[in-house]
Design a binder for these strands. Structure first.
Lengths: 143, 143
DNA sequence: TCAATAATTAGAATAATTCCATTTCTAACT
DNA sequence: AGTTAGAAATGGAATTATTCTAATTATTGA
């Protein structure tokens, strides 16, 4: 059984891929849907396990390929935290991540415009920033 | 031939370790000295190769153990950038990293107090931050 | 429908790091 | 200085995350 995206999601999905000459395949739709569905910052391994409920033949290579494609299209973000596998997040607004050392849970933390501007002002003249990553580790409120 | 730290470095080194009940061994001194010596953000592999010029018997396990210890003592910082092995840095002041996609070079970028305060103010009430990582990727000025 | 090409697949390969059992070293105590 | 208990280092295997490769299958446009 193939994963169904909502009409709005489907449109965004197909449009973003086609804009880059890429094909909206069922595997890509499924990976995208799974990341949107449960916003728990799944790893490639988590995604692999969830995808296989819908498309049992899916391989790791495909999951990694799909993720790379979706990140490349700007549909999802890859989050890299120290000493943990990459995880994925559909929140496209500028935000930081806080990883709780006790629970392992990752929280999204919004970055307000003023702070974002302040952060960007750190970059020296002549440097061109493509990506910004801000992350914290420590203990979250409730564990 | 064992690596010699300057008297000041030696004092900081031995003191930080002893404060945690750990021993200032020659391997740890060597790893520490190497990170201080050439501030080029070496990876564990780089460090392994440099250490072995002084202490040829050193194993990868030891390099990783030493690095973990030094990071734990606050003598060096571990820097994790997306899709690259961890690298190490003796700059203990609050700073961000900019990785140039073309050259692979990592630049230290100071974070001024105001921006730092602004970043810390993002953290919700009740969260306890142990570590902050801010990194950029893009193109540096001269490649 | 057919051809061209893009995407997926399985499995092997690689890279980075961690683990484990053994040996060696260090430092405190005679 | 010699002993000894615990800490650290060692080599190699194991693990984890990810990427690569060659063959197969799917998608899209003519």
């Amino acid at each position: 059984m193939t994963y169904s995206l909502s009409p709005v999601q489907q449109k965004t999905f197909a449009h973003s891929l086609r804009a880059k000459g890429l094909r909206p395949t069922k595997q890509r739709a499924c990976v995208y849907g799974i990341i949107l569905e449960k916003r728990d910052h799944p790893t490639a391994d988590d995604i692999y396990n969830r995808v296989r409920k819908y498309l049992p033949g899916t391989s790791f290579a495909t999951v990694y390929n799909c993720l790379e494609t979706l990140v490349g299209c700007g549909l999802v973000r890859q989050v890299n935290m120290a000493r943990s596998p990459a995880c994925y997040c559909p929140n496209l607004s500028p935000h930081a991540h806080f990883k709780c050392n006790r629970s392992g849970k990752i929280y999204d933390i919004e970055i307000d415009k003023k702070t974002l501007a302040s952060i960007h002002s750190l970059i020296p003249e002549g440097f061109e920033t493509e990506n910004l990553d801000l992350s914290f580790t420590g203990n979250g409120f409730q564990n």
